[in-house]
Amino acid sequence: MDYILGVIAVICIETIATVGLAVFTGFTGLFSLGHAAFMAIGAYTAAILTYFYNAPFILALIAGMIMSGLISIILGFPTLRAKLRGDYFAIATLGFGEAIRVILENMSITQGARGLPGIKHYTTLPVAIFFAVLVLWLTKNFIWSKYGRNAIAVREDAVAAEMAGIDLFKVRMLSLIYSAMCAGLAGGLFAHYLNFIQPVMFTSILSTRLTSAVVAGGMGSITGPVIAVALFIAVPELLRVANMWRLVAYGLILVLIMIYRPSGIMGYHELSFEAIKNLLRWISRGKTAGRKEM
């Protein structure tokens, strides 16, 4: 039972990072292959504060978020100002992610590649769930605000959005900072959940998983990526008995999603009580009702 609760906690933590990235990739349309770095920054900042300075947990989390946000400005300012598009931006973030990891491996306060053992266990399951729900709620409001609308307009057609008077740089920068802060929060929770962090945990594999969860869940959906994250974590865990097949399952899920739901599990839509009701009605009526919500 503890084991299942543990998996749920990890899902909640990764949900936070993914939902943040969903705002950036799914709603602004820029791909990042370096968001693990923001998780690492948040994790190390929070962990160092509680480990060396005995700071309160909540303050450490906030410090991690702020640190991630500030460093995202350093990444975003030159790249977004230059209006790097698609692939070029992705490569820039890939380099950034690796650079951060190498820096962490060579700093003395992070204890290099040995990592930080013995971080206090502050992240319990209720804490993880609380923050996941909080971030989901904040993100929903962010998307429905004028900033979210701007972001969607930019994703759909950057030029047309600019012609309508939307400041591309501001919209992209804001969503990058938001996603970095979410990743930072997730990192802080992660460090205090595992009680141990080392730079190797935050390689591009983690970045790729976050981005693929957003794409597989549906660009332009918040709940879709959450479902995808849950799948990506739960299915390999279920297959722990068949050790070597776990990564195959991960790949298989991705391929199946690409074939059967090319615009992501949820596409542009959200999973809501309304949508579930409609789905049930649709099933009971025998395919006569519209499939609009799904």
């Binding site: 759909e156 057609d157 030029v159 047309a160 600019e162 012609m163 008077g165 591309l168």
Partner: peptide, 24 residues
């Protein structure tokens, strides 16, 4: 100096190939 500021000042481009929001 910027496109969005030009738009705010009343200089509006109807770009080549229209660039509508197809899903709206």
């Amino acid at each position: 100096p910027n496109a969005h500021e030009a738009a705010a000042k009343g200089i509006v481009l109807v770009p080549e190939r229209r660039r509508l929001y197809a899903n709206l």
